[in-house]
């Protein structure tokens, strides 16, 4: 990516891959939940990468995250270890930017979601909701309202996880714009995408699984993703 440091470029591609993961759930339905979780982790890690903007910190965080997850899964270490340990290297950065701590925590919880199941979803929702508000523009509020509105209707972890990845992509859009990558945000496209995704999620929550509702959600997600990766220039 021209004019863009490697890890930023990878973060942008990570966001795009999260979209691909969500898309794949349509035809790989046996593993849909796993794919959604992986997409969620990818989207949240990409957001953290953009927030940290430091390869060294990112490597330290990721290494500790993997070690902590392994210790929880294989050695039966307390979950709190996995939640707190990876945050250590990013503490200095988090002192000036609270969203870094929240994003790191969110990524950890999303990873725990994969290895430990749905129990960690609740704190994850809280963390990501706060992150979305902190990096917010008006769109986040809409998506979050939808998230809250659907919970009483018995939203499954998968749908909530999907919804949150939309929030993350929208959040990442603002960050990409600030980071100097050759991308800009087209808020009209992001808005159209978020609106469609929200309609799809509400439909899924109210009437259960249907191709149309899932299709609208994925269409919205892809539109929102495309809205934060609008190329600004050709390389010179």
């Amino acid at each position: 990516m021209y004019g863009c440091r490697g890890h930023r470029a990878i973060a942008c591609i990570g966001l795009a891959l999260a979209g691909l993961g969500v898309l794949a759930t349509l035809i790989v339905q046996n593993h849909a939940l796993t794919l959604l979780k992986l997409s969620l982790i990818l989207a949240s890690l990409s957001t953290l990468t953009l927030l940290l903007d430091s390869l060294a910190l990112l490597v330290a965080y990721t290494t500790l995250l993997l070690l902590s997850l392994a210790s929880v899964k294989l050695l039966g270490a307390p979950v709190l270890v996995a939640v707190l340990a990876p945050l250590t290297p990013i503490v200095p950065r988090a002192l000036t930017k609270p969203e870094v701590a929240l994003s790191g925590l969110g990524t950890t919880l999303a990873s725990l979601l994969l290895v430990e199941g749905a129990l960690t979803l609740a704190p994850y929702i809280v963390v990501q909701a706060i992150l979305a508000v902190l990096t917010s523009r008006r769109l986040h509020s809409i998506v979050l309202l939808v998230a809250l509105a659907t919970i009483p209707f018995g939203v499954t972890p998968a749908i909530t996880a999907s919804l949150l990845s939309t929030v993350l992509v929208v959040s990442a859009g603002g960050l990409i714009q600030k980071s100097g990558c050759p991308f800009r945000v087209d808020s009209n496209v992001v808005f159209s995408g978020s609106l469609l995704a929200s309609i799809g999620v509400v439909a899924l929550a109210l009437w259960g699984w249907s191709s149309l509702a899932a299709g609208l959600w994925i269409l919205g997600f892809l539109l929102a993703t495309s809205g934060v990766l609008v190329p600004t220039r050709a390389p010179s």
């Binding site: 892809l222 495309s226 990766l229 190329p231």
Partner: peptide, 11 residues
């Protein structure tokens, strides 16, 4: 859109 127009076409 994402794969071609945004991430590869200009790069």
């Amino acid at each position: 859109i994402i794969g071609y127009t945004e991430l590869t076409k200009r790069f």
